[in-house]
Design a protein around this nucleic acid. Structure first.
Length: 290
DNA sequence: CGCTTTTGACCAGCGC
DNA sequence: GCGCTGGTCAAAAGCG
């Protein structure tokens, strides 16, 4: 990313002349640029504060989710204990597809009433509390995680922009949902066995449900700039929680601001608007116009 | 021309 | 064993 000062120096031509008129114009331009920079910084601060608020909201949601999950786990343990008392119940094996549907039903579509969060992700670990109901053979199953993405209901594409490259290898209409389900494999590394299923929610067709199976054996090939305006908020996992805390060091906060600035300057619309605004201001105050 | 997507065929698991 | 269903394969079509 080119620094803002470099961008400005490109837009503002350097003059070798030192006439008083030129000098005053130069000063005027400088003050204008300073004003612009100040306004941009204020905007950046505003956005970062908004981001902090969203992060806090997300943390609250995550804490609520965890407490619900632990309650669910307690209930599950209780019910499994009761089952183990009853010999008829423990004798019936849970079949593969049954367990999958059970898992899906236990997941609730997380939605924000404000519509601010449209990308919710959480993991369904193989070592989850629900394992008490699963047969032992399921231990070898890959890690499954689900992502709910709010999209435009009119948008028929089954694309979930998560930064990874995916190759579609199939599509199928399932019995319980009139919307087709798309099957993807990780296209970045042939050895990477991660699979993704994407299907619109039967209840709310504006929600895309992406199911990830397994872990990537490589790093993320591309950053989320691919999202191009699609808000993507991932709730903090226990290990990542620290990075999302509001009381983190100023260095980290500054890095976050830098990242935001970077993403803004990478946006061609933003840079074009910035260049246009600066050039307009320059032309407005140019001596030829007066 | 090579890569990606589409789509019908095929296969395996499950219920009856 | 048969039918249903979800998941995968692979040839054909599409696209840059």
């Amino acid at each position: 990313m080119p620094p803002l000062s470099a961008l400005i120096s490109l837009l503002v031509p350097r003059s070798s002349s030192s006439s008083p008129l030129r000098e005053s114009h130069k000063e005027e331009t400088k003050s204008l640029i300073k004003e612009e920079v100040g306004a941009l910084r204020a905007e950046l601060n505003r956005v970062s504060k908004e981001n902090e608020k969203l992060t806090e909201m997300l943390q609250t949601m995550y804490v609520n989710y965890r407490s619900l999950q632990s309650k669910m786990a307690e209930l599950m343990t209780e019910s499994s204990e009761k089952r183990s008392v009853s010999p008829s119940a423990s004798a019936s094996p849970v079949k593969k597809r049954k367990s999958e549907s059970l898992e899906t039903n236990s997941n609730i579509v997380a939605d924000n009433p404000n519509g601010m969060i449209n990308f919710i992700r959480y993991h369904t670990e193989t070592t989850s509390s629900c394992d008490s109901l699963k047969p032992i053979k399921d231990d070898s199953r890959p890690k499954i995680s689900k992502v709910y993405v709010r999209t435009d209901a009119s948008d028929s594409s089954l694309i979930v922009k998560d930064g990874y490259q995916w190759r579609k290898y199939g599509q199928k209409v399932t019995r319980d949902n009139p919307c087709p389900r798309a099957y993807f494999r990780c296209a970045f590394a042939p050895a990477c066995q991660v699979k993704k299923k994407v299907q619109r929610s039967a209840e709310d067709q504006s929600i895309l449900v992406a199911t990830y199976e397994g872990d990537h054996t490589h790093g993320q090939p591309s950053r989320p700039e691919k999202n191009n305006g699609t808000a993507a908020i991932v709730p903090p996992t226990p290990t990542k929680k620290k990075a999302c805390r509001s009381d983190e060091s100023p260095e980290i906060q500054w890095r976050l601001v830098e990242q935001m600035a970077s993403s803004l300057t990478k946006d061609p619309t933003f840079t074009a608007a910035l260049a246009s605004a600066i050039s307009d201001k320059m032309l407005d105050h140019s001596p030829s116009r007066s």
